[in-house]
């Protein structure tokens, strides 16, 4: 009997405590929908616009928004590549649109 081990590695699985008020530095669809509640359309819109939108590189959408994707999205709207400390009307509008829902 021959046993072939081609690859053995250890995978680190991080299990955080899933409780109300916890954070994992990723925004899921559930996070967004919970936050926006009745404004589900906005949650869906921003998930679609931000997911896979990492700053400096296009990544595959995975249903979650990382902080890099979050910054990348606003960078894009704010035209931060110009190096000018300013934001565009579109960036202000998006932030206001979202932050207006803070309870």
């Amino acid at each position: 009997m021959t046993v072939h081990f081609q690859n053995i590695m250890f995978t680190i699985i991080c299990c955080s405590v899933f409780q109300e008020g916890s954070s994992d530095d990723l925004l899921s669809v559930a996070d967004m929908q919970s936050f926006f509640q009745s404004r589900a359309g906005i949650a869906q819109r921003y998930i679609e616009e931000m997911d896979g939108y990492s700053n400096g590189s296009q990544t595959t959408p995975d249903g979650k928004i990382s902080r890099d994707e979050w910054y990348g999205y606003f960078d894009y709207l704010a035209e931060a590549d110009t190096g000018v400390a300013e934001t565009s009307p579109a960036a202000y509008e998006a932030l206001r649109d979202m932050s207006g829902a803070i309870r």
């Binding site: 690859n7 250890f10 680190i12 991080c14 405590v17 409780q19 559930a30």
Partner: peptide, 27 residues
């Protein structure tokens, strides 16, 4: 937003689980 979600409590404390990931060709 990250703190907004209500999610089920699955594990009582943060843990790091080290699991062997093995790929075999036969055997």
């Amino acid at each position: 937003i990250d703190k907004a979600s209500v999610r089920p409590c699955a594990i009582h404390a943060p843990q790091l689980l080290f699991l062997p990931h093995v790929v075999c060709t036969g055997g």
